[in-house]
């Protein structure tokens, strides 16, 4: 299989990750109309969190995908992360068989499905790739781009990407890192949004629709802990590597912004401006950047720029 890496291009690219929250169709379509008009390079589409969310089906996403492609965007379809039921698998097979767009595999089963079809894929950040040997294996299976697990620090990524085990193939894949947004940290069979409303998943009434930015959970002392998003648990703070872009260069080819309820495109512009004219953004709560700096993910290192 031929894989084409794009890390030969010198400039950083930007992507929009899949929308993690449950937004109504109208909001989703509005968001992607803005995306089409924006300077984003790559857009990931699809429901990655909960199979019960059906505001948009695969055909709807394909419709959006065509519009984005016409606007010059690279489009990727993101697979569901936690695949459990036969229906989940059937749906993900439809994603794999879409015939046009590359798929981001968020479960090792999807890697298997794509590789047996001889299709290239993007390795999503919920695949456990922690070392160069695993990365090399994924490449052999058809990986074109590696989206790094969110918890990996700079030191780890540096060691991994400069390891002798992958020197000869380093030009054959590109790398992507989630650099902005609430971090996807865990997936469960249980729906925590439903639980927070005293409901169970089977009778959830799709109540996550009422929390288009997730539901914030705090400690009894008022400290931000987590953000509930259905069966996904996100960080209580927003990950923000805007002051680390220079540091990311050379290691990361694509910076991912996770769609937020507000201001996603303003932040996209902010990030892109950093390439032309870097400035130190005054970050404070609710921002965090600990993972990249080898600390607890929730931590915020201020003035980390050297």
């Amino acid at each position: 299989m031929s894989v084409s890496g794009d890390n030969s291009t010198s400039s950083m690219k930007f992507s929009l990750g899949p929308i993690h929250y449950f937004w109504d169709k109208n909001r989703v379509e509005t968001f992607y109309r803005q995306a089409a008009d924006s300077n984003v390079d790559i857009v990931y589409l699809g429901e990655t969190v909960c199979a019960k969310r059906r505001e948009l089906r695969l055909d709807d996403y394909l419709g959006v995908a065509h519009q984005l492609r016409e606007a010059g965007k690279e489009v990727v379809l993101s697979s569901m992360t936690l695949l459990e039921s036969p229906a989940d698998l059937r749906e993900v097979q439809r994603y794999c068989d879409n015939g046009e767009f590359v798929v981001e595999a968020n479960d090792m089963g999807v890697v298997g499905l794509l590789s047996e079809r001889g299709l290239p894929f993007i390795a999503g950040n919920s695949l456990n790739c922690y070392n160069p040997q695993t990365l090399r294996y994924l490449m052999r299976m058809g990986m074109q781009r590696w989206v790094m697990p969110v918890e990996l620090p700079k030191r780890w990524i540096h060691d991994l990407l400069t390891a002798s085990e992958i020197t000869d193939v380093r030009d054959c894949f590109s790398t992507e890192l989630l650099a902005f947004g609430y971090l996807p940290l865990a997936w469960s069979a249980r729906c925590f949004t439903a639980r927070s409303e005293g409901k169970v998943k089977d009778s959830c009434e799709l109540c996550c629709k009422h929390y288009p930015a997730g539901r914030l959970v705090k400690t009894q002392e008022g400290d931000e802990m987590f953000t509930l998003n259905g069966l996904q648990t996100q960080s209580g703070f927003r990950y923000n590597l805007i002051n680390d872009i220079q540091d990311l260069m050379g290691m990361v080819d694509v910076l991912r912004l996770s769609p937020q309820l507000d201001d996603t495109f303003i932040w996209l512009q902010n990030f892109q401006n950093q390439l032309k004219q870097p400035v130190a953004f005054p970050l404070s709560k609710p921002d965090c950047n600990g993972f990249w700096h080898d600390q607890a993910g929730k931590d915020l290192l201020i003035a980390s720029q050297t």
Binding site: T81, L82, S126, N128, P149, V150, E151, L183, L185, A186, W187, F226, T233, S235, G290, F291, A296, G297, K298
Partner: peptide
């Protein structure tokens, strides 16, 4: 294997 809550905290 897909839970990063502990490293987050």
């Amino acid at each position: 294997g897909r839970c990063y809550l502990s490293s987050y905290l």
